[in-house]
């Protein structure tokens, strides 16, 4: 059993770079729940739409229309297997069954907060010691906290 990014499911199941023995015996499913919770113990990292502030209003409107069209159910139906969609009209494939199940189970969206990037940086830098087995989880988390505090202070998120 392994936990992996939902969007990486396709690479495990397609013929390229994988062997028959792997593809025929692998099934992807939703994230497990924890404790007595019904919610899957995972978060959904969804793609949003951003329009930069310094373009003209006409461009912004055109961009908005184009992007709304890009996530319409017609486009989703036409490009069903191009990616894992969260919109209406999507028919899950074997590769995306896990993600869809997790979403249907009511998993929380990933907190898209301005300081999350800083937190990722701190986690990425400090958690590797624990994953390599050279440090205890407590020590690694303490390091993460210390690294984050210093970085977030510099970024102005902490005083």
């Amino acid at each position: 059993m392994a936990t992996l990014w939902g969007s990486r499911g396709g690479a495990v199941l397609d013929g390229e770079g994988s062997t028959e023995a792997v593809t025929s015996t692998t099934v992807l499913t939703g994230a497990p729940t924890w404790g007595n919770n019904a919610r899957p113990a995972s978060t959904l990292w969804w793609d949003g739409i951003a329009i930069s502030a310094n373009i003209s209003d006409e461009d912004a409107e055109a961009t908005f229309i184009a992007m709304m069209h890009g996530i319409s159910s017609d486009v989703i139906k036409a490009n069903n297997d191009a990616t894992v969609w969260l919109g209406d009209g999507y028919t899950p494939s074997a590769a995306s069954a896990g993600v869809t199940a997790t979403a249907a189970g009511g998993a929380a969206p990933y907190p898209m907060l301005p300081f999350m990037g800083t937190l990722h940086g701190a986690l990425g830098a400090e958690i590797s010691d624990f994953l390599q087995g050279s440090e205890s989880a407590e020590q690694a988390l303490m390091d993460v906290e210390a690294a984050y505090t210093a970085a977030a202070t510099e970024k102005g998120f902490l005083k």
Partner: peptide
């Protein structure tokens, strides 16, 4: 130098998974 302390305000934020009140920059 370091960056200015960010000014926070409370707003209602709606995503594909529902709405809630939260602090935003």
């Amino acid at each position: 130098h370091i960056e200015h302390t960010t000014v926070l305000k409370e707003v209602k934020n709606c995503g594909p998974f529902g709405c809630k009140l939260e602090m935003q920059v």
